[in-house]
Each structure stands twice: as structure tokens, then as C-alpha cells.
Computed example of a mutant assay.
Amino acid sequence: MINGEFNRKGELQFDITLIAADETDYPVKAILDTGFNDWLLINNKDAERLRWLQEQEPLKVQTAGGIEFLDIYEGIVLIDGEELIVRVLGGDNIKEVLLGVRWLRFKRLVADFSAGVLTLG
């Protein structure tokens, strides 16, 4: 189980690690976004720096900001002590690393804002 924190906007924020193709670890803060239905969303430049493999043609998706074309990568994430290979969506205008609700199929989320308790595991 990993502990998270509620950031200044009240978002659910967790420390995770992205693992580059050369096995270098990159700790990042990621926000759990219940409106995002996939595993992970990052900026394309970050995916390129990690040298993650781009899998196929961009995916056309509806976002809160409108229609976007997102690249698809195969990425390695270390979360809750587990190293997992997941599908990662990447966009040029992405400003934050987002965890999607797919994680909730395998991880239990406890979010109690009033008690300051946030865990994923």
C-alpha cells in the first residue's frame, strides 16, 4: 500500500516511479484522475526521454478539453512495490502525470479528506 496526499487543489496525489528503457528510475508525483479510464497519461516528451516504445498510431479520444490524438506507449511503472508494464497514453499538451481508474481494478483506494488519509494498495 502506498500513502498519498491531498494536494493544495484537493487532488489525490501519489508518489510513483517511472522506469526508463535503460532501467533508470524517475520518481514522480501522479494525480489519480477518476475521469481518465486508462492506466497512465504523460507528456510525449517525457515518454521519449524514458525511451518507451511507441506502440501504434495515435488514439483519438474525447477529453474534457475536446477531441485529442494521444500517442500510445508501453511503459514500466513501479507502484506499491510492484513493477508493472502498462499502456501509457501521451500527449503534447499534458502538464501532469495522471493515473487512471484502471488501477482501481487491482488496487484499493481509501480517500478520507477530513481525516487526511489517502492510500492506494
Rank of each mutant, 00 (worst) to 15 (best):
S114P: 07
L98M: 15
N3A: 04
R51W: 03
E83G: 06
I79N: 01
N37P: 08
A111I: 05
L120H: 03
G121Y: 02
T63A: 13
A115N: 12
E55H: 06
L40W: 00
N93T: 12
T119I: 05
T34A: 09
E11T: 01
K9C: 06
Q56D: 14
L32G: 00
E96D: 14
R51V: 02
V77Q: 11
L99E: 02
K107A: 08
F36E: 13
G4S: 08
I2F: 02
L84Y: 05
N37M: 14
T17G: 06
Q13P: 03
P58I: 09
I94Q: 05
R87M: 10
I72A: 11
L41N: 00
V97T: 15
Y26Q: 07
L59R: 09
I76M: 06
L53H: 12
E48Q: 02
G91P: 08
V86S: 10
L84H: 04
I42N: 02
E23L: 14
W103A: 00
G65K: 08
R51F: 04
L84V: 12
D71W: 00
L32E: 01
V117Q: 09
A21M: 05
L99W: 03
V88W: 00
I19E: 09
A30P: 00
L12F: 13
D80Q: 05
E57K: 11
G35A: 13
D15E: 12
E55V: 15
V61G: 10
G75C: 08
E96Y: 13
A20H: 01
V86C: 14
T34G: 10
I19S: 07
R108T: 15
D92K: 11
L40H: 00
E23C: 12
V117N: 11
N93E: 15
I94D: 01
E57W: 11
L118A: 09
P58Q: 13
L59V: 09
E96P: 04
T34S: 08
L84K: 10
G10H: 06
K9R: 08
D92L: 11
D71M: 01
L78S: 13
R49G: 06
I42Y: 02
A30H: 00
R105D: 15
